[in-house]
């Protein structure tokens, strides 16, 4: 395959996505055959652009929070003083992952009410595991004599963490964040069942009114976002891996 072909495809997808969420009217002829009885072709209870941005915002907030907590936890349990908490933290994070997001939503609504909050909680819990596991892998598989050299040079524990251990683990941690983001992009759609403003709204509206065009446009926007973000984060990951002298995994 030609080297420029993937970039070209990516660019095309970005342009298509932007065109669709800003000017959905252009795509009416394409989606028209999917509707019956003169039902609306393009989602009409809110702007697709706004929903897309809100969807992204929800994912961003949840991922940032999950990253901070997961990385902090991984740092804590890889210090000598925190080593005994490793099994406990592992099971806690695993529970977060095995608990179905729908159940989290159901439990969170009575506590925090409808809207974005229960969705954020579900996405946060769901996103913890991949980041935590990867951060743990990154921090525990550092080349031993590099870490020893850092000690031997007289770095304090904090200096070793910030100058050597985290930079060298960065590519692997980024891999965890990438997984987490992609899971969250898809999972965020169910947030609309508890009145969060996400692209799930479009899909649910389609399901309720039996409108295939709605379902498709909601699903496709989410899928396009996931592909593009996955791609972009992979590129950043490869770049950092090269910069840190670690081959991309």
């Amino acid at each position: 395959m030609k080297a420029w072909l993937p970039s070209l495809l990516r660019l095309a997808l970005v342009m298509l996505l932007v065109a669709f969420v800003t000017n959905p009217g252009w795509f009416v002829p394409l989606l028209k055959p999917l509707t019956e009885n003169n039902a609306p072709v393009i989602y009409n209870q809110g702007s697709l652009l706004t929903l897309t941005l809100l969807h992204l915002r929800t994912v961003l907030i949840a991922t940032v929070a999950a990253t901070i907590v997961a990385v902090a936890l991984a740092i804590l349990v890889t210090r000598p003083a925190g080593a005994e908490f490793l099994p406990l933290s592992r099971s806690l994070v695993n529970i977060g992952q095995t608990f179905p997001p729908v159940a989290v939503l159901a439990l969170a609504v009575p506590a925090v009410g409808f809207g974005e909050k229960p969705t954020l909680i579900a996405l946060f819990l769901y996103g913890l595991l991949p980041i935590f596991e990867n951060a743990l892998t990154g921090l525990t598989t550092l080349p031993a004599n590099v870490v020893e050299a850092a000690r031997g040079a007289g770095m304090t524990g904090w200096q070793r963490l910030t100058k050597v251990e985290l930079p060298l683990s960065a590519p692997i941690i980024l891999g965890g964040i990438r997984l987490s983001v992609v899971i969250s992009l898809a999972t965020a759609t169910i947030g609309s069942t508890v009145a969060a403003k996400t692209l799930g709204e479009v899909i649910i509206a389609g399901l309720l009114s039996n409108n295939l065009a709605f379902i498709l446009q909601g699903g496709l926007i989410v899928a396009a976002l996931a592909v593009l973000i996955y791609d972009g984060l992979s590129a950043i990951e490869r770049y950092t891996a090269r910069r840190m002298g670690r081959e991309a995994e």
Binding site: N145, V146, A149, G152, V164, P167, M244, G245
Partner: peptide
């Protein structure tokens, strides 16, 4: 000064 066995240079 400490020259570690197997150099141990910081790869990044």
């Amino acid at each position: 000064g400490y020259a570690i066995q197997g150099h141990g240079l910081f790869p990044h």
